[in-house]
């Protein structure tokens, strides 16, 4: 039994992936959930592989999630926190790429403040590159774990109405979600202050709601994005309190919906800003399921990308049944 689709060398974003490739990752993540429930949470699939987690930006959840995924596949991992580097980004990445190559690594997981950094690196090294968030561009593994969580909860993605709420303009999570959801046939909407909506987003077939009440009336799933507080200083929103009053996802607002709306949040949450605590901890919240699924999705991506060199595949074919 082999999978019909393959992923290629790198995972830089969902924009250029096919629905089959996305489904392959989600289907592969399924059996990896069970690995994390075993008494010994480890399988030898990536034994001997060296993976560098190269984080040019702060991250707790994503980095730990990748690290668990790598360790549960028996890979050797090195964490590089390259924050605070004053070198210009182009030079840094090229240099970094050369140094990594010289140390004979197999895969790089990269987070970087510049959009396109993962692809840039992937084009310059032979190792597999996985994007763990690049600027405002994409955060593909977050969107994949969101898709998996939606599929777990609703049994399907096609035809579901999913609304991304909040700072869509600056959000790589939103961008990756838009690609993934539309490719798998969901109806997608966005909702938030007009200052935080990307211009021309309707042209992608995405509904835009100016009021959270309208979004709640429409949606099966709300994916509530984190409001980055520095946005307030830059004048995108008047105040945090004002934001909560107008766009906060509260039990009172959700009560008006005829459906039980699934609540998601990529974390870290600002309780009492974009989401009310009673909603975040409520019966329809799948926020912690997202975190659990994150490890399984990342194991699936690492497993699917690692190794599998074409010239060896032919040689192996004759030997095995």
């Amino acid at each position: 039994m082999t999978a019909s689709a393959t992923l290629g060398k790198d995972l830089t974003g969902l924009e250029h992936m096919t629905p089959e490739q996305i489904r392959l990752i989600l289907d592969t993540a399924e059996p990896f959930k069970e690995v994390s429930e075993r008494p010994i949470k480890k399988v030898p699939a990536l034994r001997g592989k060296t993976i560098v987690n190269l984080f040019f930006e702060a991250s707790t959840r994503t980095r730990i999630s990748f690290e668990f995924a790598e360790k549960r596949l028996s890979a050797d991992t090195v964490n590089v926190a390259a924050s605070g580097s004053s070198v210009s980004k182009g030079e840094t990445l090229v240099d970094t790429a050369r140094n990594l190559e010289a140390m004979r690594i197999d895969m790089v997981v990269i987070r970087h403040p510049s959009s396109g950094a993962a692809e840039f690196l992937g084009d310059r090294i032979a190792s597999n590159v996985i994007n763990a968030g690049d600027g405002k561009h994409e955060h593909p593994t977050q969107a994949l774990l969101d898709l998996l969580t939606i599929r777990d909860k609703h049994g399907k993605i096609e035809g579901l109405k999913v609304c991304l709420v909040g700072d869509v303009l600056h959000s790589r999570v939103a961008r990756s979600n838009l690609w993934g959801l539309t490719k798998l046939g969901a109806e997608v909407a966005v909702c938030g202050p007009w200052t935080l909506m990307p211009r021309g987003i309707e042209e992608l077939g995405v509904k835009v709601f100016a009021r959270i009440e309208e979004a709640i009336e429409w949606a099966d799933v709300l994916n509530v994005l984190r409001l980055q507080l520095e946005r307030m200083e830059k004048g995108f929103i008047p105040s945090v309190r004002e934001y909560y009053r107008v766009f906060g996802v509260t039990p009172e607002r959700l009560e008006r919906s005829p459906r039980a709306i699934t609540i998601m949040h990529p974390g870290p949450m600002n309780r009492g800003v974009e989401i009310d605590s009673r909603v975040a901890d409520g019966p329809h919240s799948v926020i912690l399921d997202q975190v659990t699924n994150g490890v399984a999705v990342r194991m699936a991506v690492l497993y699917l990308l690692a190794g599998g060199r074409a010239e060896l595949a032919e040689a192996a074919k004759r030997g095995s049944e």
Binding site: T2, T28, P31, G307, G308, A313, G319
Partner: peptide, 19 residues
């Protein structure tokens, strides 16, 4: 599947079944 000694050499990755 995840314990195979030829994972490195198989082309498209094998689909993993339930354990």
């Amino acid at each position: 599947t995840l314990y195979r000694d030829d994972l490195e050499t198989v082309g498209p990755k094998p689909v993993i079944g339930e354990t």
